[in-house]
Computed example of a mutant assay.
Amino acid sequence: MSGTDGVGVVGCGLMGSGIAEVCARKGLDVLVAVSSARSEENGRRRVERSLERAVSKGGIGPADRDAALGRIAFTRDLGGLAGRQLIIEAITEDESAKLDLFSRLDKDVEDPDAVFTTNTSSLPVMKLARVMSRPERVVGTHFFNPVPVMPLVEVTRSLLTSPESVERVETFLTKTLGKEVVRSPDRAGFVVNALLVPYLLSAMRMAESGFASPEDIDRGMTQGCAHPMGPLRLADLIGLDTLEAVAGGLYAEFKEPLYAAPPLLSRMVEGGLLGKKSGRGFYRYD
């Protein structure tokens, strides 16, 4: 980001930890705001494990790993983000939680030049921008999981976002982080999830009806269509709770049946079967 070497990240789950890691590996000072000591501990462990994998695969050396870890600090005070020119929100995909967070950021980070981005994968950016006194400074930046590996970021501007804010964010993503950017209009699901989610939900309905097993559905798409991963294993990787939330946002916006979460998905989420991160979804994981 022009004029600063520091970035603020809010949240340190799968996405927040990945964003913090990528920024730190590019030499940026990263301050991560978390809600509790447990969130900090889990977030720090996620970053450490990811960096260890990068070392084991030869992507970085031990010195680079240690340097990246040294650039990441944590805080439980949103006010600690004051002075950061770019603040990236990456908390859970929950509309009320995001609205509350942006409302607090508006009060705690008063720098008129700060740009705020949201990693939402389904919520219109306007919904979040409207609670801020500087809606022109709010941009959508949808990263993809795992952030250190996936090159794409969807950039979304609301009707109120200034061209300057979009330009600053896109320059940061492409020039500093080395990401690829696609622009999307401000509508639920943006480009990728508007196409991807109906496909994943269709695979779930096929399994739910007994038409085919999860293994055969996934094998059909990997071996028959050359997809790198089958839809149900991909759903497990994304997180079934996240997928249910995205589907809910899409259905609320468009009222199209293809966006509605099937009962099987809802029951799995209610039962804590969230996919790879919980150890069990459509498949079991160690």
Rank of each mutant, 00 (worst) to 15 (best):
S17H: 08
V166Y: 00
A203S: 06
R53I: 05
D241C: 11
A97T: 00
D113T: 14
S162Y: 01
L273H: 12
A68P: 09
L31S: 07
R84F: 03
E136F: 04
S122M: 00
S202H: 10
Q223T: 03
M206Y: 01
L152T: 13
G27S: 09
A97V: 00
S122A: 15
Y285N: 15
I217L: 04
R46Y: 05
D241G: 10
V7I: 14
A73N: 09
T176Q: 11
Q85S: 14
L200C: 09
G70R: 14
I72P: 04
D218N: 07
V166G: 12
G8V: 05
A194I: 01
R25Y: 00
G58Q: 14
R25H: 06
L258F: 02
R53C: 07
V30K: 05
M150P: 06
A188R: 02
V192I: 12
V147P: 14
P112Y: 03
R219N: 12
P262H: 08
V30L: 13
D218H: 01
V125D: 05
E215L: 09
G272S: 09
P146A: 12
D5H: 09
E180A: 15
M206P: 01
R219I: 02
D94Q: 14
L232V: 07
L243C: 01
E164D: 09
R157M: 07
S56D: 13
R76V: 03
V32E: 09
M204G: 04
V138L: 14
L250T: 06
L232R: 11
M268V: 13
D108F: 06
E93T: 11
R84Y: 12
R53Y: 05
V7W: 05
A20Q: 07
G61K: 12
P263F: 07
L177R: 08
S121T: 03
G16T: 06
G43V: 00
F116T: 01
L99M: 13
L105R: 09
T174W: 05
V32D: 08
Y251I: 00
A63Q: 15
V30D: 05
L273G: 09
A188E: 07
E167N: 13
H227R: 11
R44L: 01
L232N: 08
L101A: 11
G230L: 04
A207W: 00
L173V: 00
Y251S: 12
V147A: 13
H227S: 08
L240E: 00
R76N: 14
G230T: 08
D106Q: 08
F116C: 06
R53S: 14
A252N: 10
G249A: 07
V149R: 12
H227F: 15
G248Q: 02
M150A: 11
L265D: 02
V191E: 06
E253W: 03
A260L: 15
L159A: 12
P62N: 06
K98E: 03
